[in-house]
Computed example of a mutant assay.
Amino acid sequence: MAFASLKDVYIDQLQDLYSANKQARLATQKLAAAASDDTLQKALEAGVIGIENGMSALDAIIRGHGATPSAEFCKGMEGIVKEAQAHALDADFTNDEVQDAVIITQYQRMVHYALAGYGCVSAFAKRLDLGEEAKTIDKCLNETYEGDRTMTDLATNGINKQAA
């Protein structure tokens, strides 16, 4: 894709974020299945729903610009997902609480990538005077922050202590 304007960059980054979410959704489903703590498992399942909601919002925005959501493949998230697989799922754990701590770590890495993506496209939408799109993106951004805070709370208020 040739970038001639900020709008071109905006659409490209929306597509990249859509791809990142698509990859994170599958990884989060696997992390939820591997979690031993019920509260963590439920939080990850809620994360899957949040990711799906974000994908739906991004799909509508991208299509509204006459583009295809799946036109981009996010290699950044691909690497983070591979790390999650290796460290949280394929590693040998003798303690469920330790695995839960690693699951939180890997999930938060994926979330932080999404936070950066949503923050950038929000700024682009605002600069391009796409107010309704900016509101939609900011809603996704805020929900992603909330998921991150939930994981931090789970880690600091129990799981990390149990893993220690």
Rank of each mutant, 00 (worst) to 15 (best):
S122E: 15
E146P: 02
L141W: 14
C140G: 02
S122A: 13
R127S: 11
E132A: 13
A123W: 06
R127F: 14
R127M: 14
G119E: 07
A123Y: 06
Y145C: 07
F124C: 01
C140Y: 02
L128E: 06
C120T: 15
E133Y: 09
D148Q: 04
G131C: 05
G117S: 02
A134V: 08
K135I: 04
T136Y: 09
Y118W: 05
D138H: 01
G119T: 00
T144E: 06
F124I: 04
L130F: 11
L141Q: 12
I137Q: 04
D129K: 12
K126N: 11
G119S: 05
Y118N: 00
E146Q: 13
N142Q: 15
E133C: 04
E133V: 00
L130Y: 10
G119D: 04
L141H: 13
A123G: 09
S122N: 11
E133G: 01
K135F: 03
I137R: 04
S122R: 11
E133D: 15
V121M: 13
D129Y: 05
D138E: 15
N142P: 03
K126L: 15
G147C: 02
G119N: 00
G117A: 05
A125T: 03
G119I: 03
K135S: 06
G117Y: 01
D138P: 03
K126A: 14
K135H: 07
T136E: 12
E143K: 04
G119W: 06
G131Q: 15
C120N: 12
Y145R: 13
Y145M: 11
N142V: 11
R149D: 14
A123N: 02
I137P: 02
A134S: 08
G119C: 09
A123S: 12
S122M: 10
K135Y: 05
Y118S: 01
Y145G: 01
R149P: 02
G147A: 04
A134P: 07
F124H: 10
Y145A: 05
Y145N: 13
E146G: 11
R127N: 10
C140S: 09
L128C: 01
S122V: 01
Y118C: 00
S122D: 13
V121R: 08
K139G: 08
R127Q: 15
D138C: 07
Y145T: 06
E132Q: 13
T136N: 03
Y118G: 00
E132F: 08
R149A: 12
R149E: 15
T136F: 06
V121S: 07
Y145E: 14
L130K: 11
D129R: 10
K135L: 07
A134E: 15
K126P: 06
L130A: 11
K139T: 12
E143C: 00
E143I: 00
A125K: 02
K126Q: 14
E133P: 03
L141M: 12
N142D: 15
F124M: 14
T144S: 01
A125S: 03
E133L: 00
E132D: 14
A123V: 10
A125M: 08
T144N: 02
G119L: 01
